[in-house]
Design a protein around this nucleic acid. Structure first.
Lengths: 224, 224
DNA sequence: GCTAATTGGTGTTATCTCAACACTAAGATA
DNA sequence: TATCTTAGTGTTGAGATAACACCAATTAGC
């Protein structure tokens, strides 16, 4: 049977955009202004254009919502149960995006309301987006243990204490300062800058993510 | 924009069916008898029906090709680059299936030629199916280290030596017999049966996979 | 300007985990 | 009955991990 003869589902991409704000993990949601689920909060997403790749579509959605480019983006899972969208058969390729902390949400070009929500206090979500967000969180926790995605949630320069705090928030448990610093340095994924950040207490050296580092999939877990 | 107004891609599922035969990992491929790529070998797959879930579609394809049901099946990745299929925009949700060893391939209902291929000696594949198979292999190697999917490649009952051999083939390296047995038993994923298998040498106890075991994602890697 | 408070930064040791290693057991075959 | 073949079983040294406390540099308050 030729492809064009077949009744086709619609295909969307949805992007679970995660950041670290106010000492907790937060996710960006948009309020739907159209049926179905009008007025409910949802993960930002939209239909895939015929001439763009899935990742390009995800980056387009991400850019429309946040105005940022060049962020960490990874395919998460494809949701395709019949009945997940009352409009008809819609298959959604979900992505997870990690964006640096002090990010202000662009006023959506389509004037939809958009805001950050704490992952621990989510409103009821449209479609099967609660499953989507939960899966993203599981994947993030899991990934951070043996690769270096944690940096993607921080601004370009950060102190070791800020980095440790980020890891503690994501993993949900306190980490030993000396062990943390030793392992991060041994992993060779960050490098010191020449800058120092002053504040209350002793000033701290600023570090940055090493762009040449092999951040993905270390042989050994970073935080066992 | 309503879903039905949008130009839609086609959606297929492809299933990378992997087994262990003749002391190596093998994958089931079918020879395409239609354009495009007519005569080339491809991963079995087909269009998703509008009333079935993605996993149901994958199981249907798997059943059509092999006649088996109740096998390990997991979503692998969704391939959706424009241009990956010359017929037009086709998005393919790839699954990986692990089937027990002594499985004879059903004569395909559509009389296509189908056979097992060694993963180390693959023919040129249609579409982007070489990437698909490589990704499946990577995922399998990766997964077997910290979960218990290895059993899904063996018949219901097996000896510990057979299981160790399977792991050695998948990981591509020899394992220490005593360490292997200790870890497998500590993981509590298999249980002894009352049966013994005789053969050349001392007869061996048969084991089976524990259906009640929490096989997925052990906290600790099985084979570090 | 002196003291207290706050955060940054640094090594060592006991414990646990992992990997290496060799012999006896049971049955089949010659 | 001797030999061959595969099954089955514990211990130990080395390396990795986790637990742990103090001094340093600056700011804030008096």
């Amino acid at each position: 049977m030729a492809a064009s003869d077949y009744p086709k589902p619609s295909v969307t991409v949805d992007v679970v955009i995660i950041t670290l704000r106010a000492e907790e993990l937060q996710v960006l949601l948009v309020k739907r202004d159209l049926a179905p689920y009008k007025g409910r909060w949802a993960v930002p997403g939209g239909f895939v254009h015929l001439d763009e790749s899935l990742e390009t579509a995800a980056r387009r959605e991400l850019h429309e919502e946040t105005g940022v480019a060049d962020v960490y983006l990874e395919q998460l899972y494809t949701f395709g149960d019949p009945g997940r969208d009352p409009r008809g058969r819609v298959i959604s390729v979900a992505y997870i995006a990690l964006v640096p902390a002090p990010l202000t949400v662009e006023a959506g070009s389509d004037a939809r309301e958009a805001r950050w929500w704490s992952l621990s206090k989510l409103p009821p979500l449209a479609f099967d987006h609660d499953k989507m967000v939960q899966l993203a969180l599981t994947r993030l926790r899991y990934k951070i243990e043996y690769s270096a995605v944690g940096f993607r949630l921080l601004p370009e320069c950060f102190t070791l204490s800020e980095l440790q705090k980020a890891y503690e928030i994501i993993l949900g448990e306190p980490l030993d300062k000396r062990n943390f610093r030793r392992r991060i340095m041994e992993a060779e994924v960050i490098e010191p800058t020449d800058d120092i950040r002053a504040g209350e207490g002793r000033p701290a050296r600023l570090y940055r993510f090493r762009r040449d580092a092999v951040a993905e999939v270390k042989a050994r877990r970073l935080f066992p």
